[in-house]
Design a binder for these strands. Structure first.
Lengths: 121, 121, 121, 121
DNA sequence: GTGGTCTAGACCACC
DNA sequence: GTGGTCTAGACCACA
């Protein structure tokens, strides 16, 4: 997998995992790949995956069964969506609006942009 | 000056400078404070300011006159606004829309949000 | 390593690196020495090497993989030769011709000089 | 006057003076502008002109009559041409050829370049 | 006075 | 282990 500079690899991997959980590729209650397996799949040091899993565990998205592996928490989808929505409405969106304001981009211009790309949604 | 961590000091200072240029506090063609002067003003090591100035020079925002100091490039405002707009439309906005899509937030919801905060613009 | 003064150490080191890339000692895609390692090898402060590597990265000659090290960009050789040729034909050569003209050296004299040293090529 | 970065201003001014001497604008034996006068003409600090004049005096191109001013040395033209020719054949030309060789530019290519620009000489 | 470079040494996040 | 940033302090060339 290719990573972008400027954002930690372990966070980028965490994102791909939460995406897989939301999309259903990683199902609630089921085991996710082992640290080593996932590391080789991602072309990354196992320590990095370890860090990712720890982070996700702290967020209640996966849980560890010692000697067996990591499992998707039953409420993982809900947890992820909640935390992401919260971040979206309290950080990303206001941040964007603040930038737009500074640049003199009016909300009408933004709305037009939304409509011009409406074909997808 | 107080700095947030998670972002390099020299970049935060670069931002305050571009802000001053856009706001007109640092006027086009005029000299900005010397490295040492600005360093003491910001409570920071001169090397750090040096780094900031070099970066801004590479972005064509300021230019150096040997032995005299750094001066605001005549087209600095334009350069800054262009680069920020580019970042906005190619990175920030698509990023936001991607997030929204994953979270199942429709463009109509977004538009409503824009209208609800319309009082300011 | 011994350095000449009149030219920054970090630029001299950059030159030795591009030389190694062109000569093939530093192979495309492969890792170059770590900052600390190369610093001690050159008998120089790590910050100085850091500066060199940053400069080379900005010129698309090397690239960074987080936490692992710097690697020679696959097109590094090409990039280096192109930039050097550009400098040659837009700066060095016209400069020389300008000097020659001022000194009253004709192009025929120059051509004779070229032929007299032709044994090597 | 506009100066290029990367070369000291006092050296750039020295070059314009030697050019004027060679071209005859500054005649042998005659007075050249005073430090202050030339400084304001060049839009430069008098110290800088002082440095230039000292340098030129050390090269036997101008000489100082205390309280009166600086005068073009009678043999100035000859001195300048000799020193520039020496520099040309011992430094500039070999330097250029060395670069060309590294870049794989043959002497034949160079000769063609000389001919293509022959219209001027 | 100005910028520019370099060193020594520290601390941090990340792999 | 890797790079990245920052500080403190020094020295230099140049205007």
């Amino acid at each position: 997998m290719e990573f972008q500079n400027g954002k930690s690899i372990f966070l980028q991997i965490a994102d791909t995992i939460t995406d897989k959980v939301v999309s259903g590729e990683f199902e609630a209650g089921k085991k996710i790949p082992s640290v080593r397996e996932f590391a080789s799949e991602m072309g990354v040091n196992p320590n990095t995956i370890m860090r990712t899993y720890s982070e996700l565990q702290a967020m209640n998205i996966i849980e560890n069964k010692r000697g067996i592996g990591y499992f998707v928490n039953p409420e993982a989808q809900q947890v992820i969506l909640e935390s992401k929505k919260r971040e979206f409405f309290t950080k990303l969106l206001p941040d964007l609006l603040r930038h737009a304001e500074v640049l003199g981009i009016t909300r009408d211009e933004l709305k037009q942009h939304l409509e011009s790309k409406n074909s997808k949604s």
